[in-house]
Design a protein around this nucleic acid. Structure first.
Lengths: 150, 150
DNA sequence: TATTTCGTAACTATTATTATTACATGAAAA
DNA sequence: TTTTCATGTAATAATAATAGTTACGAAATA
């Protein structure tokens, strides 16, 4: 079950980019994300339009972060991806005139709208720097565990 | 864009059933929901297992609500449908060992889990009676508007 | 100029969901 | 008891959304 995982894939890509001091090519990112370079370009195009990354062609070209990690939240990235639907379930639209359907949709809309607002707010609280720090912490733990094992 | 709209479809069906004093057949519900009777049976099967509805075969058979409207919440129905995934996006699972991926997944899991908990709690606050009342209100308004227009 | 790399359109493949067909089972009516 | 009606369910087909691929053009660098 691996639906629309673009958001996590993009975060994954951006953090890998942050670990390097030169551009990463679409081919490199494709290997890293186990996908196709064309898919990488398509996805990153949205981020470029949002000025979160830049791309360069030819020798030494590839993808580069355009802003400091502290300035970019997961919400920014979600927005740059076109604010894809967060929820699996939509409303019925079989009989738009049906008053029963309207009552149902109204109740569901209320609940889903609130949950969505909360989720988006949460995405806005986490920056790429937060994620990078968490990665570094995990990396340090990993090394410590290796060392202890000898 | 009409993904997995089972929840709203089922609510729609149950409220229509509530408006009647005899069982509704799968064919009737299928017309009402603009789908196929077999799809209706498949979907309602989950509700029957959860004892929210009963089904009867042969003449006079069909689907009947098994509990008072006040006793059934949208959350009960969500549960009866097998608690389908609420979110469109899952986590990346390309490289389970990748520490970058783990950091990303952890942050996303946190946000999604909280939003899901909130949404499910909200579903638990709305009963079928709530929806039926809302329907009746809309119906009264509808009639008043018709009357005023002559 | 040769090579690298992105940009993008067109097409194919995969997957998830929904719809359909077919037939068995059970219940009520004739 | 036979006929009719309705659900139960497996198997299959159709549809739609997403992802992957191919192909080729454009731009930048060596």
């Amino acid at each position: 079950m691996k639906r629309n995982s673009r958001l996590s894939a993009v975060l994954h890509a951006l953090l890998h980019m942050a670990e390097r001091d030169r551009p990463m090519t679409s081919d490199e990112l494709a290997v890293c994300l186990q996908t196709n370079p064309v898919v990488v370009r398509r996805t990153m195009a949205g981020l470029r339009e949002a000025a979160l990354v830049t791309s360069g062609r030819g020798h030494g070209g590839g993808w580069t972060l355009a802003r400091p990690l502290e300035d970019v939240t997961m919400r920014d990235i979600y927005a740059a991806l076109g604010e894809p639907m967060l929820f699996q379930m939509g409303n019925a639209t079989e009989s738009p005139g049906c008053l029963v359907e309207q009552a149902v949709n109204h109740a569901l809309d209320d609940a889903f709208r609130d949950a969505e607002a909360m989720l988006i707010a949460r995405l806005g609280e986490v920056t790429l720097a937060t994620l990078a720090d968490d990665f570094k912490r995990r990396f340090a733990e990993h090394r410590a565990a290796l060392k202890q094992r000898g």
